[in-house]
């Protein structure tokens, strides 16, 4: 069998047989502990600093954001953003309870279609699971309430994110996932897919020159809900 062929070839190279059990124990312990390595100092700062760093990085990566005080303010922020960019007022929306709880009726002209994205969708609204300040990266684990297609198919990609879910480093986002997510299929914490998204899609394949909106969204807009008292300076 090729599996044995490969494993045996590796062991020949390593000049040993299968890993002795005491060493295997050590490696299993390392996996169980999944130790963090160096975490850059740039995100080891206070909460207001982390939020500011996150937003700075969103803009550095060609994204935009609106900061709103609570969920009630989201419809207006979304409507304003769509109007300002001449975008249609209907959008595909993650079927997430937090998004469903937004008082969309305040803005009756906005039309939400909960579900996965379709190829024809020009605008989508995703639920932000968490975000990483270090590089302005959104953390979007797939779930029934957070379909992956919403991240990819539309031209304009909006994400509602709670400020309390902005962490400093990627490792903290993994810890959230480890603590909060149970995947029934694998018995672990990883859903089928976790996308880390940093800015809108882009390519420099044509004459080494950057263009936004290659295959994925051309625009990325974060609506940040200020639900974290500690995040205010």
């Amino acid at each position: 069998m090729s599996k044995d062929t490969i494993l045996n070839a590796i062991r020949r190279g390593l000049k040993r047989g299968p890993l002795p059990e005491d060493q295997a124990l050590g490696l299993r312990a390392r996996m169980a502990a999944h130790p963090r390595h160096l975490i850059p100092a740039r995100s080891r700062i206070d909460r207001p600093g982390q939020i500011a760093l996150f937003l700075r990085n969103i803009e550095k990566e060609f994204g935009t954001f609106t900061r709103v005080p609570d969920l009630d303010a989201i419809p207006e922020a979304v409507a304003d953003y769509l109007t300002a960019n001449n975008l249609p007022s209907d959008f595909a929306m993650a079927p997430h309870p937090e998004l469903a709880a937004i008082p969309w009726s305040n803005r009756p002209l906005l039309t939400q279609r909960p579900g996965r994205a379709q190829a024809s969708d020009l605008v989508s609204l995703q639920h932000g699971y968490a975000a990483v300040a270090e590089t302005g990266t959104l953390v979007l684990p797939a779930a029934a309430v957070r379909p992956t297609t919403l991240n990819l198919l539309s031209d304009t990609f909006m994400v509602v994110l709670r400020a309390s879910r902005v962490v400093g480093a990627y490792e903290e986002a993994w810890d959230l996932l480890r603590a909060e997510n149970r995947d029934e299929r694998s018995g672990g914490f990883m859903p089928r897919n976790v996308m880390l998204v940093t800015g809108p899609s882009r390519s420099a394949d044509i004459e080494s020159t950057l263009e936004l909106g290659a295959h994925g969204p051309r625009r990325l807009h974060v609506v940040l809900v200020d639900d974290d008292p500690a995040a205010f300076a």
Partner: peptide, 9 residues
Amino acid sequence: QDFSVYTTF
């Protein structure tokens, strides 16, 4: 880049 646009697991 500090991070690529899409890093998917």
